[in-house]
């Protein structure tokens, strides 16, 4: 559960964002997903808008937003590194991999996003690709996913450095 870090620049989302979402309580999960797709996380105003759209009290929407794993109430990094914590992946070393990543990126306990907001490291539930254990998935800013199979600290360090280089290269 994160604390509500609001952003003052959050504007009211137009109805277009919620196209296809039923205006009924059972549309809440999808409505929140749409808000998160816009901001990359759920600011309080976004939760309020979703609640208003489907017609439930803010408290109910907040309860749902804080319950499910996919929703993040704090901004997540540009590159979201998801480390699968499935059984096969754990047995093949992902618990060590995640510690390695957190230390490499300087993440203090309890924090999941780097200072420069470039990377987030999160535990993910099983992706179902156990043949490639241990699996790490990077959600990229363009919406694509990079799946790293048989991940180990060496390949993970190379991955992080590659994205850093790309970012620096793009900034020029």
């Amino acid at each position: 559960m994160g604390k509500l870090e609001g952003s003052n620049e959050v504007s009211v989302l137009p109805d277009k964002v919620f196209e296809g979402v039923p205006k009924a309580p059972y549309g809440l999960l999808e409505a929140l997903r749409r808000v998160q797709a816009v901001y990359g996380y759920l600011p309080p105003e976004g939760i309020r808008r979703a609640a208003e759209y489907v017609g439930v009290p803010f408290a109910q929407a907040y309860g749902v937003a804080t319950f499910y794993h996919q929703y993040s109430l704090e901004p997540i990094g540009k590159y979201r590194i998801l480390v699968c914590m499935g059984t096969a992946c754990h047995l093949r070393g992902n618990s060590l991999n995640i510690e390695f990543l957190r230390t490499l990126l300087g993440l203090k306990p309890g924090r999941k996003t780097t200072e420069d907001k470039m990377f987030s490291v999160e535990e993910a539930r099983c992706f179902g690709c156990c043949g490639l254990a241990p699996v790490v998935v990077v959600q990229k800013p363009d919406g694509g996913n990079e799946i790293v199979g048989r991940a180990n600290p060496r390949t993970l360090r190379a991955l992080v450095e590659r994205y850093r280089r790309q970012e620096r290269g793009g900034a020029k």
Partner: peptide, 9 residues
Amino acid sequence: IKCGVCYTV
């Protein structure tokens, strides 16, 4: 931190 990278490389 017992991450094992030295072991791997």
